[in-house]
């Protein structure tokens, strides 16, 4: 029971700094779940990230996967609820006043200020997952190729995910 409570509290804390959504939280989830509590090892964390990538739905659901592996169904419910509840309540209370503070100098400043931090977080997430998976030269080649193709062409990301899966199935990575 105390495990589920720990999970819940840690993910409530995470939800409060989730600027940029669950994707921006990957580095911190890794730090808390793998390094601090040793709930999961590097390999499992990488696998869960991959499963979440390949599944439909909002990308916040990676937290349900982590919760499941750490604490079964109660764990999955705890992490998902913890991630969604605090901000849902806050937005419920604030939405009617949004027109009042939207566009004010401090609001614009926070929006502008948070953007470069989110860039750094997402870059860190990709780096840490690549390191956790201890990619070899070929896998890094795939990372680079996917990045370039995604930036240069309109190809749907799902095709790139499928290509990665096939290469992995073939045992090349």
């Amino acid at each position: 029971m105390s495990l589920v409570i720990d999970l819940f509290l840690e993910f409530v804390l995470l939800s409060l700094v989730a600027f940029g959504g669950a994707t921006a939280l990957l580095p911190e989830m890794h730090r808390v779940v793998v390094e601090q509590y040793h709930w999961l090892d590097d390999q499992t964390f990488t696998h869960l990230y991959a499963i979440a990538q390949a599944a439909p739905g909002p990308n916040v659901l990676v937290v349900a996967l982590i919760g499941w592996e750490v604490g079964g169904l109660p764990g999955a419910l705890a992490t998902t609820l913890a991630m969604c509840l605090p901000m849902s309540i806050l937005i419920y209370l604030l939405i009617d006043r949004w027109e009042g503070f939207s566009g004010q100098r401090w609001q614009k400043a926070i929006s502008l200020g948070v953007a470069p931090l989110a860039v750094g977080l997402i870059f860190s997430g990709a780096t840490l997952i690549s390191l956790a998976a201890s990619f070899g030269l070929v896998a890094w080649g795939v990372v680079l190729a996917v990045m370039v193709i995604n930036l240069r062409s309109g190809l749907h990301p799902l095709w790139l995910i499928a290509a990665g899966a096939l290469l992995g199935l073939g045992g090349w990575l």
């Binding site: 991959a50 390949a54 193709i149 995910i161 990665g164 199935l169 990575l173």
Partner: peptide, 12 residues
């Protein structure tokens, strides 16, 4: 899963 993770990191 390794392959998917690599593609996912590229997208990130």
């Amino acid at each position: 899963l390794r392959g998917v993770a690599a593609a996912g990191c590229g997208l990130l």
